[in-house]
């Protein structure tokens, strides 16, 4: 332990920053896509049309019972083959690890966001929707203008907590050899044989960021609590 060399971090900083940029980007895209898709799933689960509700519930339960890592691998390796058999192409189309990661995370996170948004929608009293319908708004208008904004606001702290989990989970894509923040650190660590320094650095950065995010979420929760 005597000869730790933290200068390696300074030298690798541009590369690490690039990795962090991808990590943040994937987190944001997966969050936005996951919330949108998850909200649609939640509406489907709450639909009075049973087949739709069952299909959505099946999807959510499936996703929530498979480890994320498996979903990532499956999608990466199986999706091209599936696409090939669907389109009848000669060779499996190249989706690429980065694009594959975007799609996988949206599909996976949507299952969790679905459950959050479902609870949020159910937290809004039925009378609110009734009032919207009574004014002549249709189903989508009632959802978009009345129910979902309130549900989203009520669930914001929980959504942010899930976003922090997502931010950490994104590191799994390094196993597809994608250069996210962790992936970048792994590569430097191996190239320069500076494993301890790099992993310490990664841990500290994750801790600081997640700590800042969760105290932000807590503060937001207090603010929203005052508004009601």
């Amino acid at each position: 332990m005597g000869d730790l060399d933290f200068d390696v971090i300074g030298r690798a900083l541009p590369y690490l920053a690039h990795g962090m940029q991808y990590t943040v980007q994937l987190t944001v895209v997966a969050f936005a896509g996951g919330v949108v898709f998850g909200t649609l799933l939640a509406l489907a689960r709450l639909s009075s049309f049973k087949p739709l509700a069952l299909a959505a519930a099946g999807y959510v339960n499936l996703m929530r019972s498979i480890p994320l890592l498996l979903v990532i691998f499956w999608f990466y390796f199986l999706a091209p083959v599936l696409l090939q058999s669907l389109t009848g192409a000669e060779r499996p189309p190249q989706i690429g690890a980065e694009r594959s990661a975007y799609i996988t995370f949206i599909l996976f996170e949507a299952a969790y966001f679905c459950e959050i948004m479902r609870a949020g929608i159910q937290s809004i009293a039925k009378g609110q929707a009734a009032a919207g319908f009574a004014l002549g708004l249709d189903y989508w208008q009632v959802m978009r203008r009345i129910v979902l904004p309130q549900a989203f606001r009520n669930m914001l702290p929980v959504l942010l907590t899930q976003a922090i989990v997502l931010f950490q989970d994104v590191s799994l894509v390094s196993l597809l050899n994608v250069t996210d923040f962790v992936g970048a650190a792994v590569k430097i660590a191996q190239r320069d044989s500076r494993v301890i320094e790099m992993y310490l650095f990664v841990a500290v950065v994750y801790f600081l960021l997640c700590f800042a995010l969760s105290s932000g979420a807590r503060r937001l929760q207090l603010r929203l609590a005052i508004v009601r």
């Binding site: 009293a125 009378g127 609110q128 009734a130 009032a131 919207g132 319908f133 009574a134 004014l135 002549g136 708004l137 203008r145 009345i146 904004p149 309130q150 606001r153 009601r228």
Partner: peptide, 27 residues
């Protein structure tokens, strides 16, 4: 049809995330 029939509820059911004026203009 509903747009032409006004309804007032026991618990008001104003939309709490919208201002009073927005409540009146939305529909």
């Amino acid at each position: 049809l509903r747009a032409r029939i006004g309804m007032v509820f026991q618990n008001f059911e104003l939309f709490p995330h919208l201002s009073v004026m927005e409540n009146l203009t939305l529909a």
